[in-house]
């Protein structure tokens, strides 16, 4: 590639990387693919997504079909993960359950993310009294014990999977709001934000056009912590009977309905238990890798 030249300002080849440009996303994916726990975690996340998307095509049995003739069968050739107390195929139920995990993870995190970003940016852009009001609200939410906050929201809305998602989402808002405010305040002091001010940009343009893109990496990193926690919380709520209700094959709900058979048929608990354990592990590994890749100190 030739370089534009004006007198005395010729730049030799090599000062700007003239290789075809790769977008940031592809660069990040490439680095993830080279990262060891990124590969393992990525594979786990991919498996969850595939199970959620194509679960109904993959399952050997209908997940809700009761077959009392084959109840509590141990894992074997016809039922790889065994069957539960109502003769339902556990493999099918576990595969089917992946969609609830994904649903919970995505929706509750989206609620927390959206609400937190809105409140945090409002506090920063508004400043003064707005800032104080918003942050006191956040403080009050944070002052509640996490579980108590969840229970309060569910008590208000009634137990269901949707409620559990909303509750976990709302409970996540203050964490995001605090992060957004803190990051935005520090970004606001950067010189390139000053540069926008010098050009005449208003608060709205600076907040949404300059500050928000700058804090996104930090938000993604935070999300990698929050999402597995949200999934786990929703499963715990289901286990307590406050989230997904039987016969829905949500993993937490599966655990609770089968737990009285643990002594005689370990697999009824092992199947959903391992599914939760492995998926959370996978999400965490993926999150670790994402943090390594996005952390500016590593790039």
């Amino acid at each position: 590639m030739t370089h534009q030249t004006t007198p005395g300002t010729l730049a030799p080849a090599g000062t700007v990387d003239h290789r075809p440009r790769r977008s940031g996303l592809i660069r990040i994916l490439r680095r993830l693919a080279r990262h060891r726990s990124g590969r393992i975690g990525g594979a786990a996340v991919l498996v969850i997504i595939l199970m959620a998307a194509f679960g109904s095509l993959l399952v050997p049995y209908a997940p809700l079909k009761i077959d009392m003739a084959h109840r509590l069968l141990p894992p074997g050739a016809s039922h790889w993960f065994g069957t539960d107390e109502l003769g339902r195929d556990l493999l099918s139920r576990v595969i089917f359950g992946a969609r609830y995990l994904l649903l919970v993870g995505v929706y509750s995190t989206a609620i927390a993310f959206g609400g937190g970003v809105l409140l945090g940016l409002l506090a920063v852009a508004g400043g003064g009294w707005t800032d104080m009001l918003v942050m006191r609200l956040v403080d009050i939410m944070l002052a509640f014990p996490y579980v108590l906050l969840l229970l309060a929201i569910i008590a208000a809305l009634g137990p269901s999977l949707t409620t559990a998602m909303v509750a976990v989402g709302i409970a996540g808002i203050p964490g995001y709001a605090r992060l957004v405010r803190g990051e935005a305040l520090s970004v606001r002091e950067r010189e390139y934000v000053d540069a926008m001010r010098v050009l005449g940009a208003g608060t709205l343009r600076i907040t949404l056009g300059t500050i928000l893109p700058s804090i996104l990496p930090a938000l993604v990193i935070y999300t990698s912590y929050v999402m597995p926690l949200a999934v786990l919380s929703a499963s715990a709520l289901s286990f307590l009977g406050l989230g997904a209700q039987p016969p829905l094959p949500e993993w937490g709900a599966m655990l609770v309905s089968s737990r009285s058979f643990l002594a005689t048929a370990w697999w009824v608990v092992a199947a959903p238990g391992m599914a939760i354990f492995l998926s959370i592990l996978g999400l965490n590994l993926f999150g670790n890798a994402l943090r390594d890749v996005l952390d500016p100190k590593h790039s």
């Binding site: 950067r190 010189e191 390139y192 000053d194 540069a195 926008m196 010098v198 050009l199 005449g200 300059t210 893109p213 700058s214 996104l216």
Partner: peptide
């Protein structure tokens, strides 16, 4: 504003890395 502008000292900090 458009009539008075500023050239910054630090060419790294003064450019938005995301733009």
């Amino acid at each position: 504003r458009r009539h008075m502008q500023l050239i910054f000292q630090d060419p790294y900090a003064s450019l938005d890395p995301h733009a």
